[in-house]
Design a protein around this nucleic acid. Structure first.
Lengths: 219, 219
DNA sequence: GTGAAAACCATACCGCCGGTACAGTAAATT
DNA sequence: AATTTACTGTACCGGCGGTATGGTTTTCAC
């Protein structure tokens, strides 16, 4: 029972790496099982077909990302009571997290999957879409909280700003990979962070530095 | 001779749509030739293997995008002498272009390819990387021109802002697709446009409205 | 109009892969 | 000790990427 879960996890790990490097269609089950050290029968014991592998990969990815966001938002809120400062800290932590990855970000499963939508059934696409909506909702909530305290720039829709963060992350991953420079993603997140700062502190950004005990992570 | 070019073009058209819907690895040559109404021999007359198809797809995509950027930047410069206004017009035109696509943006080949890098040889990846660098350079040049006239916000690196635009486009395409809402991309470009406005006109954006004869496209 | 090059078609074949089917087995759990 | 879990082994099917080879039609240059 526990051994089965371990094998399953190993399969998912190997398959995810392959999917992010070659795409789902080009990910061969035979390669995966060779690397995992099991037989084809063993694979189909855990996943009845390739589509169920896709669903499992997606669920796993969404859950792990949820955990990361939970953590980083939680720590942001711990380090400051001010919604703006807390969000800026969260963004800084995220940027650090991305910069600390030795080989750069491994890739966003949601991005690959949306570029291969025809390969998956509705359920897989729904998992991805609702996860994206949930993350965008998180960002928007954080922005709304800030906007209830700080005056926001008028001609910016906060919904769009929230979605833009998702765009910057996914786009940043693509740019990092395509340009072969892992630090692009980190810089992009920090650039978005400056954008948020500017959005809520257009006139005199120096005024709203965080209190001393939260200043370390915020700047 | 001319007929050959037509067939080749038809193959590329069909293959591109398939690649953007299923990925390169899952794009079957047999499906492509069936839709194109040719035989397998006919296909391999034009492309000696699948990798050469990939290279041709990439070259075609880069050239078309170059044309689009040429056009939209040229028209932006035509409509205003002011570098900021001209860039804002360019962004507006781009947003309109994206919004007018009936089924949403078909997808960015560069994005798919970077998520399937292991399938292509170095030459294909180099074409993609240098194209991205060239487009980022265009944006950065436009921003530098603006910065030579308008004071820019200090803690924003213009290189990062330029790359961010690429991120917003690629991310916007993914979000549009994933959320099933084609208008997200247009809104994201316009949001980035507001960001640029804010970046160069933080204190009093109303002051620098364009002269009357360029006002239509700019706002 | 003719010859040559270009643009294909037809057929046959190889090996890999996704997937199915089914029979068997070692280990963990109850 | 019985049962479930977690696999292995073997055999097979059809589809696909790719190669090879030889033939046929269309187009263009002269």
């Amino acid at each position: 029972m526990r051994k089965g879960a371990e094998t399953r996890e190993r399969i998912l790990e190997i398959a995810e790496a392959s999917v992010l490097a070659k795409g789902f269609g080009a990910t061969s089950i035979e390669e995966v099982i060779a690397e995992a050290g099991i037989t084809k029968s063993g694979f189909f014991y855990h996943f009845k077909d390739k589509n169920e592998l896709a669903r499992a990969l997606m669920l796993r990815y969404v859950e792990e990302n949820d955990r990361i966001f939970d953590d980083v938002f939680h720590r942001g809120r711990q380090l400051s009571d001010d919604p703006l400062q807390s969000f800026l800290i969260t963004l800084k932590l995220l940027a650090e997290l991305m910069g600390d990855l030795p080989n750069g970000h491994p890739g966003c499963l949601i991005a690959t999957f949306t570029y291969q939508e025809r390969l998956f059934d509705r359920s897989v696409r729904e998992i991805a879409a609702s996860a994206v909506r949930s993350w965008n909702g998180r960002f928007r909530d954080a922005l709304n909280e800030i906007a209830s305290v700080y005056p926001a720039h008028k001609d910016m829709d906060l919904d769009d700003v929230a979605i833009m963060f998702s765009c910057v992350i996914d786009g940043g991953i693509i740019m990092s990979r395509g340009l072969g420079d892992p630090r692009v993603l980190e810089r992009q997140i920090l650039a978005f962070r400056s954008f948020v700062k500017m959005l809520f502190a257009p006139a005199a950004p120096d005024i709203m530095l965080p209190p001393a005990h939260t200043a370390v992570a915020a700047e």
